[in-house]
């Protein structure tokens, strides 16, 4: 790199030959990369997964969460609600079923009829009830441990997606899934730090 200084750049005047050659006729345009069934399952499953995170985070203001945990919960609600809309939009644009996050089956793995299982990392009904009955520092602890478990499940879902042949390759899915991975890893680290603070302060 040169940092040569001078008065204004002496641009070569070659623009006179306005070029149209760089444009390609419509006929030779290529198709977009294809999405796969695994992509659709990932987006559908993640809607219910995110919806549970929002349910958990919504408890914070009424369950005596610390200021730090409440702030974090507020960000989870904002972030994951927007991502639910993004996933629904992606599915609708392609004519795929877009689950309603309020549907009790959202977040279920429906690939084996009769054996519905929660998506990875999701809290069981018992865990959710325990969280709902906790207050103050107990809520903080259960929220953080639960959300770490929940986020680690999201990382598992991303890994499963990319292990599926041909999946996660369109830029939208690739970008969203790697974004979920990066964001939630950063959030897990933050939650682990908050949890360590609680553990230190309550063991004194």
């Amino acid at each position: 790199m040169s940092t040569a200084l001078g008065l204004r750049a002496l641009f070569l005047v070659t623009a006179g030959a306005a070029s149209v050659a760089a444009q390609t006729p419509l006929a030779v345009r290529v198709g977009s990369p294809r999405y796969t069934a695994a992509d659709v399952q990932f987006m559908q499953g993640m809607i219910g997964h995110h919806a549970q995170a929002v349910v958990m985070a919504t408890m914070a203001p009424t369950h005596g969460a610390s200021a730090q945990v409440a702030l974090f919960a507020r960000k989870i609600i904002n972030s994951q609600n927007d991502e639910i809309e993004l996933m629904q939009g992606w599915l609708r644009d392609r004519g795929e079923g877009a689950p309603d996050p309020k549907d009790p089956h959202a977040g279920m793995d429906m690939s084996m009829p009769g054996h519905e299982m929660l998506m990875p990392g999701m809290l069981t009904a018992e865990q959710l009830a325990a969280l709902d009955s906790a207050r103050g520092v107990d809520f903080d602890r259960l929220f953080l441990t639960g959300m770490i478990q929940h986020h680690q499940g999201a990382l598992t879902m991303v890994a499963t997606l990319f292990d599926s042949p041909g999946a996660g390759q369109t830029p939208e899915i690739f970008g969203f899934a790697t974004g979920v991975d990066a964001d939630q890893r950063a959030e897990i680290a933050r939650m682990q730090a908050m949890l360590a603070t609680i553990t230190r302060s309550t063991s004194k």
Binding site: L144, T145, Q149, Q152, A182, A186, I188, Q192, L195, A196
Partner: peptide, 20 residues
């Protein structure tokens, strides 16, 4: 050292980030 959380008395959680 990065803190290693020990949720629910289980094994230490893997340290997850940042890694890039």
């Amino acid at each position: 050292r990065a803190p290693r959380a020990n949720p629910a008395g289980g094994p230490p959680a893997p340290r997850t980030g940042p890694n890039q």
